[in-house]
């Protein structure tokens, strides 16, 4: 469905030099599939997202969505692409317009894509959507500032999903949330995927969350995909040293494992 086909991108780094940000990235997301993209800060995660959404132009390669070349699409195709591919941001405090009510926020996609032309029709769809993400009708007239971080992320998901996209790109959607709230949002994304057959591209630095949500995983190291395979392959039998190093560094909430690993490392040096 979404095909990221050999894209590369570099940025000027002064003195005529260029830094390679993305190097020959190949990544596909099929209908209903959940793909995880793992990378540390500076690995090029956000550049991939921007290219995939057509917000940034790769130097070479192409991004296509169901046959549409995202960067060279006609107005009509672009509108279809915008309806089918949505994004959930990391920071639910900055990703919602503070001057719009929840009804306006969630209903905007319906209005823009003319999916519901009457205000009453939109309201009904918005209420239905809010129920799906676990919020009530009383949320309609309220503004984002009166909600907690977890609730805002639910609103953001409702806003993205109400127009029934085929692909949801998630950019670290739980890393800004409190630990006890993260599971709610992770479960919600899982439900959405199961109920709506949504494809998910889940971009995160947190390997544990990716393992939990995604059946296919790609590991990004400094602009290059170094490992790409099923969840079981990548997590249980990693091949690339970088993947191994990452997995060994992830903290595991079990004191015996944590201490054993530390002792091993200290003996090794």
């Amino acid at each position: 469905m979404l095909q990221i086909d050999h894209i590369s991108k570099s940025f000027p780094a002064g003195r005529g030099q260029r830094t390679m940000v993305l190097d020959d990235i190949v990544l596909n997301v099929d209908e209903g599939q959940s793909v995880g993209l793992v990378g540390e800060s500076g690995s090029g995660k956000s550049t991939i997202i921007r290219c995939a959404l057509g917000l940034a132009q790769p130097d070479s390669g192409r991004v296509s969505y169901s046959g549409i070349d995202v960067h060279r699409a006609s107005r009509f195709d672009t509108l279809r692409f915008r309806r089918d591919v949505q994004l959930v941001f990391q920071d639910p405090y900055a990703s919602l317009n503070p001057r719009m009510t929840v009804e306006e926020l969630v209903g905007e996609g319906l209005l823009v894509h003319k999916l519901e032309t009457t205000a009453a029709g939109r309201r009904a769809r918005v209420v239905e959507m809010l129920r799906m993400v676990g919020l009530g009708e009383e949320a309609l007239a309220r503004y984002p500032r009166s909600f907690s971080g977890g609730q805002r992320q639910r609103i953001a998901i409702a806003r993205a999903v109400v127009i029934r996209p085929k692909l949801l790109i998630c950019d670290e959607p739980v890393s800004a949330l409190d630990v006890s709230v993260q599971a709610q949002v992770i479960n919600l994304l899982q439900d959405m995927q199961a109920q709506l057959g949504l494809g998910i591209l889940f971009v995160a630095h947190d390997l544990a969350v990716v393992r939990h949500l995604c059946t296919t995983v790609a590991v990004l190291e400094r602009g290059r995909i170094v490992e790409h395979g099923s969840r079981e392959q990548v997590f249980d039998a990693p091949q690339h040293p970088y993947t191994k190093a990452l997995l060994e560094a992830v903290p595991i909430p079990d004191p015996a494992i944590g201490r054993a690993r530390r002792t091993e490392r200290q003996l090794a040096t």
């Binding site: 959404l53 917000l55 672009t78 509108l79 915008r82 309806r83 591919v85 949505q86 994004l87 941001f89 920071d91 900055a94 990703s95 919602l96 317009n97 503070p98 905007e108 996609g109 823009v112 894509h113 953001a156 806003r159 993205a160 127009i163």
Partner: peptide
């Protein structure tokens, strides 16, 4: 530059 403006563009807002 705010994320919510980018979000509106991704939603297909004119």
């Amino acid at each position: 530059e705010q994320p919510f403006v980018e979000g509106a563009r991704i939603l297909g807002v004119s």
